[in-house]
């Protein structure tokens, strides 16, 4: 039970989740998977906020922020997936390496 009384464990798990998200985003090529990696990063943020909010006392700011992050993340994914669909209809691919009409 000792572990649950201190925030370090939660923060470590969150940090690991966040790094997995970042690494996944860099390594994977499928657009849908990229959005999943971003979700992973946002969930790491939520875990950090919840863990911290539990230990900083009476303020509800942390918990409120988690709800806002979830809502905004849903909106962000909706916009992102809408664009992915628009592209898939035209090119029948969701691979990042094919997104090269304009050369970077």
């Amino acid at each position: 039970m000792d572990v649950l009384d201190r925030p370090e464990g939660f923060l470590m798990v969150a940090a690991v989740l966040f790094v997995i998200g970042v690494v996944g985003f860099i390594l994977r090529r499928n657009l849908i998977v990229l959005f999943m990696c971003v979700e992973l990063m946002l969930n790491a943020v939520n875990l950090t906020l919840m863990a911290v909010a539990r230990y900083v006392g009476a303020s509800m700011e942390g918990q409120i922020m988690v709800f806002l992050v979830m809502a905004v993340a849903a909106a962000e994914t909706a916009v992102g997936l809408a664009v992915v669909i628009a592209i898939y209809r035209k090119r029948a691919t969701v691979d990042v390496d094919d997104m090269t009409v304009m050369n970077g």
Binding site: P7, L11, F18, G21, V22, F25, L31, L34, F35, V38, M41, L42, A44, V45, T48, L49, A51, V52, A53, V56, E61, G62, M65, V69, E76, G80
Partner: peptide
Amino acid sequence: IYGSVASALMLYGISLLFG
């Protein structure tokens, strides 16, 4: 897609500052 990563980075920074 890059913007959502940028906002996730900023958000993680904010959550650490909150801590």
